[in-house]
Amino acid sequence: MKHSLGVGILTRCRIRFDGSLGYFGCGLIDGPEIHITGRVGWSACENMMSGVVVVDHNAGSLTGAAMRGGDLVVKGRVGARTGIDQKGGSIIVLGDAGSMTGFMMQRGRMVLCGDVGPGLGDSMYDGTIYVGGKVKALGIDCVPGEWTDADTEFIERKFRIYGLGSPPDLQKFVCGKKLYNYDNLEPAERKLVL
């Protein structure tokens, strides 16, 4: 298995990987449209700036870590801490997601069509997480959000563009904003806002 393939490509192009990628595939990209017919290892699309990546099967832990923009579609399952520190873009997963998904998410959108492990959206600052299956447990400061027409438009548009069929019924989760000034607080003060 080759690692760090398709990394740092900063131009518009189309790339197809027939097979699977190792760790850190397609990281730091800004512009390409990439199709991977197999699986991907840890940290696929880490720090992705823009573009489109479609993975036909499963992805490992830390998928889309610190992603800044673009669309990442995983048609299988994803591992733990998917979208950790996500700062933009859209991560769409048709299968299940592991624990601590969306940990410290700051902006962007995640659509998780299957079940999700414990700690969903833990310590998120902003952004939106949509879940189709069961949530094992919400993380700290991750709360249900109010569905709007903009949510419906976004979900329907992305499912149409990527040919994903009809979207499932989704629950929406957002930041409760109780930890918004987390860095400014002393440990004793933190307890007061939780």
Binding site: G31, P32, G51, G70, D71, R107, I161
Partner: peptide, 11 residues
């Protein structure tokens, strides 16, 4: 922008 919508500009 890449893809069929405004991609990264959505943010």
């Amino acid at each position: 922008t890449p893809g069929e919508d405004i991609n990264w500009l959505e943010d």
